[in-house]
Amino acid sequence: MNEKISRRGLFGVSAGAAAVLAGAQAATAAPRNTGFSLRWWGNNSWEIRLGEKRVLIDPWLTRFKTGTYSPQGADPETPLEVNKKLIDRYVDSGELRADHILVTHGHYDHLTDVPYLAKKTGATVLGTETHLSLMKALGAPEDQLAVASGGEYLAFEGYTIRVLRSLHSAVGPRAQVPFPGSRTLSCRDVPRRIKDLVEGGTLSYQVSGGGLSVLNFGGSNYVESELAGLRPDVLLMPAGGAKVVGYASRLLTTLGNPAYVLPTHWDDFDYPLDEPGRDYGGLTPLREAVAQASPSSRFVVVDHLQTFTP
């Protein structure tokens, strides 16, 4: 797949959409002393804090330039990079820790940093066979990799992880998945360009602990039947979904209209993590869709490195 992929087509927003944060509610709420909080590390990178425990979802701090949200879209030949110095700064200072790392799918803006973070933190990593194959080829410790296919409901000290079968966002007029493909654990080819990091199936995760639960999707699509009966307190909802019929209304209704909806995957990641998030154009449409579909849900915008406590 050598054509350039535009995430503007992926999320169905106009090329001229400007960053709009005005009107967003403050990313704070009255704490309930549960030890549960969420910190946003940009894109779909979330740190879930459950007392002394830490769960990371799709941690990607490097944010190398791809032009993903430019009119031309990302160049599939863009080399993969891992900013080890940046990751070391956060991990060595104790600011970033992990007991588990959860991977939703194999694309460059979700998986690239995970192998190095796994080595640095000693965390157990969950993902599909393809995700684990990619990470093993990129140097992740094999004994820290745990395969998941969706349907798992796992208990650990202080929290549980529910793994759900899910779907990636739909791209362009043919509603395609960018960089599709899968690979076995025995595959030894080392990924070197962003097109080498194939989707490899998509998972979503519900993490519960301290009396609260958070549900995350790595792409703006889902398997509705997988979500039956789930009632998360916090929904991490990707911007976009233009190609998905009733994206916001079906999701929010199925989940019982969660108390909090936090947008995710809405920032242009060509810009650094230590700058405020720049809306690629999907934030306002998502806010409006949530307000229409679930007026009782509080839409809370968390900026880079901010923490939200329900």
Rank of each mutant, 00 (worst) to 15 (best):
D274I: 02
W41P: 00
F156T: 01
W60M: 10
D270N: 07
G139M: 01
L212P: 04
G35T: 07
T307Y: 07
S93E: 14
K85V: 05
G181D: 14
E152S: 09
R165V: 04
G9F: 08
L286E: 11
D189P: 00
V245F: 13
P115F: 08
H304Y: 05
A293M: 07
F36Q: 07
F217N: 11
L86T: 04
V300M: 14
S249V: 07
Y116L: 03
R192I: 06
D196I: 03
L21A: 09
D268Q: 06
Y280I: 08
A123C: 06
V114F: 01
A293H: 12
Y90G: 00
M237H: 13
A74F: 06
T253H: 13
A175Q: 15
L283K: 08
S169C: 06
G209Q: 02
G151P: 06
T124V: 08
A15K: 08
T130L: 05
P285T: 07
D279K: 06
P232M: 08
G42R: 13
E199D: 12
V245M: 09
K84I: 01
V302A: 10
P263K: 13
V91K: 04
Q144H: 09
T62S: 12
Q306T: 00
G127K: 01
F156L: 05
R287N: 05
P295W: 11
S93H: 11
E157W: 03
H110G: 00
A140D: 01
E226Q: 14
E52V: 02
G172E: 06
W46P: 02
A140F: 08
